[in-house]
């Protein structure tokens, strides 16, 4: 078994054992922190498909994260105020059901990814980065100027949404739900990486003109990747909003996009568990150093610098070795 697989197994085991440790050590807040890390990891797994496999440096992934968050916020706020979402041409009520909210978040964020991809994939390199950033800023300011859903103040949801058969207000059960979704998405991602589509996407990142010569359109491959990526990050957004019972334009900010990218880079670009490691390190540093100084991100910058300078494959690459052994 390769070192990377052992590391992946250890990370997964650690995530599974966290609730037991939190109960044993009587540190219930750890579960909330772990939930935050798992949700960030999910968002970063989404970005990793676009960035790692597709080579798309998107500085606008907060759009999908925020759309997922607002999908939850809007549906739940209508449900809690007993007012329909729309009344014409047909009535759509709000909902407090997580599966329905997730579905809406996935459809909305993948739709946004499709639109953004159709326009932004006409460009590449620094122009692609700038266009995705521009879309992010557009959505951010749109959310700020939308008073119906809280504007700059955001939207508060009083009670966490429900999932059939679970008490989602129990931190351990909600954590388990988020972890199950992360595992499911990681399994899909692992399969995707080895599928003909994933391999062609990887190849398109390496030598696009060669991919064209074998009859594949790199832009279409990248568009599909961006849509899948957006859908996953959107799902993470819905969960994040549910964790905080609050959604605000901050979720759409470019700083959020940057943070999701930092998770991927610290953990390891194009590594299956890279986003998990990256999000874990981020949340850990935020918790441990956040109490020491409000400028804790200086230390995060230091970690990022070390990883970028000395470990091309992020933390997973530094510990797990090369991506593919020859």
């Amino acid at each position: 078994m390769s070192r990377e697989r052992l590391l992946n197994g250890a990370l997964l085991l650690a995530l599974i054992l966290i609730p037991a440790w939190a109960l044993y050590a009587d540190e219930p807040f750890t579960i909330t922190l772990a939930t935050r890390a798992v949700i960030f990891a999910l968002a970063a797994v989404g970005l990793n498909i676009a960035l790692g496999l597709g080579g798309l440096v998107s500085l606008g992934h907060a759009v999908f994260f925020g759309i997922g968050g607002y999908a939850m916020g809007i549906l739940a706020s209508h449900a809690q105020s007993y007012t329909p979402l729309i009344e014409w041409p047909f009535v759509i009520e709000g909902t407090k059901s997580m599966p329905v909210i997730w579905l809406v978040a996935i459809v909305a964020s993948s739709g946004a990814a499709l639109l953004i991809g159709l326009l932004s994939l006409r460009t590449s390199g620094v122009y692609f980065i700038m266009i995705t950033l521009a879309f992010g800023q557009m959505m951010y300011f749109f959310a700020i100027s939308w008073p119906a859903y809280g504007g700059e103040d955001g939207l508060s949801i009083y009670v966490r949404n429900g999932f059939p058969g679970l008490n989602t207000l129990d931190p351990i059960q909600f954590y388990g739900l988020c972890l199950a979704l992360l595992c499911l998405v990681l399994a899909v991602n692992a399969r995707l990486m080895r599928s003909p589509f994933g391999l062609a996407l990887d190849a398109a990142r390496q030598v696009p003109e060669r991919v064209r010569a074998v009859g594949l359109d790199p832009r279409r491959l990248q568009l599909v990747a961006l849509v899948i990526s957006g859908a996953i990050t959107g799902l993470a957004g819905a969960l994040f909003a549910d964790l905080n019972r609050f959604v605000s334009p901050t979720m759409l900010s470019w700083q959020m996009s940057g943070e999701i990218m930092v998770f991927v880079i610290i953990g390891g670009v194009a590594r299956l568990f890279g986003p998990v490691a990256g999000a874990g390190i981020y949340v850990l540093l935020e918790h441990l150093l956040g109490g020491v100084s409000e400028y804790w991100q200086i230390f995060l910058g230091l970690v990022l610098l070390i990883v970028v300078l000395f470990g091309k494959g992020g933390v997973v690459g530094m510990i797990g070795g090369r991506r593919r052994d020859g």
């Binding site: 080895r194 003909p196 391999l199 062609a200 990887d202 190849a203 074998v214 593919r324």
Partner: peptide, 16 residues
């Protein structure tokens, strides 16, 4: 100009 970071069989699968 093979796909350098893919394995032999992955190079073949990607083009299939």
């Amino acid at each position: 100009r093979c796909f350098r970071d893919l394995s032999v069989s992955e190079n073949l699968i990607a083009a299939a």
